[in-house]
């Protein structure tokens, strides 16, 4: 009680110094933002390059293409970044990305389009998609966090399992003729901008705000930064980590829905090779692979960067056999730049 009184007096003193603090605040805030936004020049350079390569690049139509192309990837990047922040990995997100929509579509589509034939209500199908995401996330979370399996190996094995299920379930067939409700996410637009883009942007914003302002969000940073300190402070480490796994999987499932909607079909190969791009975007954007560091705005710039590169390469008419090599080289350069600037902390 005595202490409280002392504190109150000190607060009074402190607020009188408030002016000084506020000004310092602003400068500090800018400095903190500066780190992540230093990828912006790289993006600007890319945009200039794109405009030079093909005047079409700068048209709204093409830029919308770029955004849409990156939307599904973006969802998975949000998901993976959250997991990385708590100090764990999840490689199976690409499997969920493919399997969840497939199972949902299977239950909805007519038999002629490789569906099961039960032809459920599309909304039920959507629930199934989210449900599968939740279930896989819970499974991963419990086994990695509670049973202490090595996150990398375990989720890698899960990834192979899920992809295998995706292939074996329908014998490799594609599910067509999906009802409008199912493909809504990937095919519709609001105010001229694709729904998928809206949702991904909202996802990034929500995650960023959560991480910054919500207790559980800050706790995630603590868990990734110093696990013991977090525990000692009474943070419910296990609960939060499992929760993150579950949320991430659901986000990945939604991302898969987006891609399925765009292609108006769910193929047996959806999600293949996705995870490399996810990690590249996250790391370039400053999310540390050790955990506890990194911000959503950085990851977003990583996604934007990758999408731009893909688009520019398509527009350039580089001999198609060279696209991979160029793509890889650009990612390496981006990583190097990120390290130089100081955002990359892998």
């Amino acid at each position: 009680m005595q202490q409280r009184a002392m504190a109150d007096k000190a607060i009074e003193q402190a607020t009188s110094v408030g002016w000084r603090m506020n000004r310092r605040d602003i400068r500090f805030v800018i400095l903190k933002w500066f780190r992540e936004l230093t990828l912006i020049p790289v993006i600007v350079v890319l945009m200039i390059a794109g405009a030079i390569v093909n005047p079409v690049f700068f048209t709204p139509s093409n830029l919308i293409n770029v955004a849409e192309g990156g939307a599904a990837l973006g969802m998975v990047v949000v998901a993976e970044s959250l997991i990385l922040l708590t100090g764990k990995f999840d490689i199976s997100l690409q499997g969920t990305f493919g399997l969840a929509p497939l199972l949902g579509a299977w239950l909805i589509a007519p038999k002629a389009s490789q569906g099961l034939g039960t032809e459920w209500n599309p909304w039920l199908g959507l629930l199934v998609v989210l449900g599968v995401g939740l279930a896989v996330g819970a499974f991963n979370g419990i086994l990695v966090v509670k049973a202490n399996f090595n996150a990398f190996i375990f989720t890698l094995a899960m990834s192979i399992l899920l992809t295998g299920l995706q292939l074996g379930w329908l014998g490799g067939q594609t599910v067509y003729n999906l009802p409008q409700a199912f493909i809504y996410l990937g095919s519709e637009s609001w105010v001229g901008i694709p729904v998928a883009v809206w949702i991904t942007v909202v996802a990034f914003a929500a995650a960023a705000l959560f991480l910054r302002y919500h207790r559980a969000g800050r706790a995630m940073y603590a868990i990734g930064g110093n696990l013991e300190a977090a525990r000692a402070a009474g943070i419910q480490v296990d609960r939060i980590r499992i929760g993150v796994f579950m949320v991430a999987s659901v986000l990945a499932a939604v991302g898969g829905l987006m891609q399925a909607g765009r292609v108006t079909a769910v193929t047996a190969g959806q999600g293949s090779n996705l995870i490399f791009g996810v990690f590249a975007a996250a790391v370039i954007g400053g999310i540390s692979l050790d955990g506890g560091r990194g911000r959503m705005v950085g990851a977003l710039t990583g996604v934007v960067l990758l999408s731009l590169v893909t688009n520019i390469l398509t527009l350039t008419n580089i001999s198609s056999t060279w696209i991979d090599a160029v793509d890889g080289a650009i990612i390496l350069i981006a990583l190097g730049l990120a390290k130089l600037i100081g955002t990359e902390r892998a």
Partner: peptide, 13 residues
């Protein structure tokens, strides 16, 4: 790899 989404993206471009 005969990827479906990349193909659609190409067509969109």
């Amino acid at each position: 790899d005969w990827g479906t989404d990349p193909a659609v993206q190409n067509a969109t471009t």
